[in-house]
Design a protein around this nucleic acid. Structure first.
Lengths: 243, 243
DNA sequence: CGGGTTGTTGACGTTCATCAACAATGGTGG
DNA sequence: CCACCATTGTTGATGAACGTCAACAACCCG
């Protein structure tokens, strides 16, 4: 099994469009912390479609994504689904004060994770006081992202939701690679996107087509989009579509 | 100016309907911590409608609500508004790793707050190592609530949103009073509720009327609701409406 | 190649938004 | 105490955005 890569803390790369402010870029723990953690971590691999845990499962382990992508989701009583987030390399999962997971997590593609038992992780936090603060920063970043998603779900129309989503993915990719990007890969399918944006897969499909026809994006393939007009897309995402 | 009351950490009062798990009840700091903080806090009062800060303002102070209620909101480019939360006694505001507020805060009624300068608060955290952990718990609770709100905004219909909202307010009230309650006060107007639930004020009005006609609630006054059938309301809120 | 899965497009329906009129409320001053 | 008026809430008629259902097309992996 390969040694999982250390995800570097990116330089303060400005997130051009998603309006997540610089200080909130602490989604990743800093590299020193990660190196220390290496000793207690255990590598785990999931194939596409495999669940990592379900909503309601007891929280046994903490994970850091090393490669691949996952989706997080909750279900309503009659089966309606809301995807509450996607996880990419460097992201943490399962850090919780709760005893039960508040959502389910499932691999979108082959995923590599570092797994830490809750106990190990707790002890590690004891030994490394700064971790507590870093965890708080992680949570604060997630919270800021969640608030933006509330604005999206509560007040944006379908086209604006798609634009926001694509720009968010672009920014996350840029944070990973550390350079400007024009292309976004979509490891999730249309239904996952729909359940993330509070739409149906048909509407997602139509809106992608609309953005394509408006020459804001180009479909490199079904699961890869090139951003053609980032400024227009950004204005659209922020609710300046018509003015 | 009156000494602000210390909000007691409620006993592990089970939140019957909102499905927020027990461990996440740490929205409030524990009483000892609060007593320590008293020495560095400064009392502030706002009248109804007064802003506490705006989105984009630099974060100068940290607040704890002592009496009254506030709303938090974000705006889109063309003025569409999403209320991202309401704050009640015991809740913290402005704790942020960011230099700018990510949302605006405005008093719904007369509000009393304890204010701490960021510096003072930072020093206080240094002197009291457990505060860091408590802050993490606060953030984790907010995050869990935000994820539930995403499910609401993404996948619930208008009646389900209203039901969830009323039960949430009921649970928060029960946590404050420490006993079972049947009645909910609504310090916010219909437009605020609408902007919180991703609806219009007309739809909010109609849905309140619908829940009243279905005998799930009773309107004590325009701004006060009695919960008549908590179980039915809870099923409705959780997406078990028709089954 | 071929069949199952996923994505796209069209026709139609439903839910909620919009617009408009009216009713209730509450604070103010006569 | 009540009349007045601004504000907020309610209700109805209509419309638009998005959901639903269905058919078809593209993709993918053996």
């Amino acid at each position: 099994m390969p040694e999982p890569a250390i995800i570097p803390l990116p330089a303060d790369h400005p997130c051009k469009d998603c309006k997540v402010r610089p200080a909130s870029f602490c989604r990743r723990l800093n590299p020193e912390t990660l190196i220390d953690m290496r000793s207690i971590g255990k590598m785990t691999v999931l194939d596409a479609g495999q669940p990592l845990f379900f909503e309601g499962d007891s929280v046994e382990r903490v994970f850091m994504v090393s490669a691949g992508a996952l989706k997080l989701y909750s279900l309503l009583g009659d089966g309606r689904r809301q995807v509450t987030g996607f996880m990419f390399p460097g992201d943490f999962l399962g850090i919780s004060i709760e005893d039960e997971h508040a959502f389910s997590a499932e691999a979108l593609e082959r995923v590599e994770l570092w797994a830490f038992s809750r106990k190990q992780f707790g002890e590690f936090c004891e030994r490394n006081p700064r971790v507590e603060r870093e965890l708080f920063h992680l949570a604060a970043h997630e919270l800021a992202a969640a608030q933006q998603q509330m604005v999206l779900l509560g007040r944006k129309n379908a086209a604006e939701r798609l634009a926001s989503f694509l720009l968010n993915l672009l920014c996350r990719r840029e944070r990973l690679t550390g350079k400007d990007e024009r292309q976004v890969d979509l490891p999730m399918n249309r239904l996952d996107i729909a359940d993330y944006l509070g739409l149906t897969k048909e509407t997602v499909s139509r809106m992608i087509a609309q953005l394509r026809d408006r020459k804001l994006i180009r479909l490199v393939s079904q699961n890869s989009v090139e951003i053609l007009d980032r400024d227009m897309l950004s204005d659209l995402a922020a609710g300046f579509g018509e003015e």
